[in-house]
Simulated scan of single mutants.
Amino acid sequence: MQQVNITEFRNHLPKYLARTKAGETLEITSRGRIVARLAPPGESARIGARQELEKLRSKCRIGDVISPIDEQWDAASDNS
């Protein structure tokens, strides 16, 4: 993902829109900070999902969810 200063982006808008149309995602910066992300259509949902996963990564830890455990249980039984 390429970062582009907002002034550069504004001065060469058609060039950057063509690059985005071709599938590239751009981060638009102002004074070195990202202020916007320009992505091809359909790409925003994937980027949003990736950002949510990145947030969860700092809060969650997923271990081995496939290996059996030593505890016996029956999901179909009525233990109410």
Rank of each mutant, 00 (worst) to 15 (best):
37 R>K: 12
49 A>C: 09
22 A>R: 10
16 Y>N: 04
30 S>Y: 15
68 P>D: 05
54 E>C: 07
77 S>M: 15
26 L>V: 02
28 I>P: 00
21 K>T: 13
10 R>M: 08
19 R>D: 06
3 Q>P: 02
28 I>H: 01
17 L>R: 07
74 D>H: 13
71 E>R: 15
77 S>H: 10
12 H>W: 03
80 S>D: 15
66 I>G: 05
36 A>K: 02
75 A>E: 13
79 N>D: 13
61 R>H: 11
41 P>F: 01
25 T>S: 08
61 R>K: 09
56 L>M: 09
55 K>A: 14
2 Q>I: 06
55 K>Y: 10
66 I>Y: 08
18 A>Y: 02
54 E>W: 08
29 T>D: 03
28 I>C: 02
49 A>T: 11
46 R>W: 02
13 L>R: 09
57 R>L: 10
70 D>F: 03
42 G>L: 08
5 N>W: 05
12 H>R: 14
1 M>Q: 12
66 I>P: 00
44 S>W: 04
36 A>P: 01
73 W>Q: 08
49 A>W: 07
70 D>N: 14
47 I>W: 02
5 N>L: 06
38 L>I: 05
24 E>M: 02
61 R>I: 07
68 P>M: 07
63 G>Y: 03
50 R>T: 11
2 Q>Y: 01
4 V>T: 03
73 W>F: 15
57 R>W: 07
74 D>L: 06
58 S>G: 15
54 E>T: 11
23 G>F: 02
52 E>R: 10
34 I>D: 03
73 W>Y: 14
15 K>T: 13
15 K>D: 14
3 Q>N: 15
54 E>G: 09
15 K>N: 09
49 A>H: 11
15 K>H: 11
62 I>Y: 03
4 V>L: 00
75 A>Q: 14
76 A>H: 13
15 K>R: 15
42 G>C: 02
67 S>Y: 03
63 G>S: 09
74 D>A: 08
9 F>T: 05
17 L>C: 10
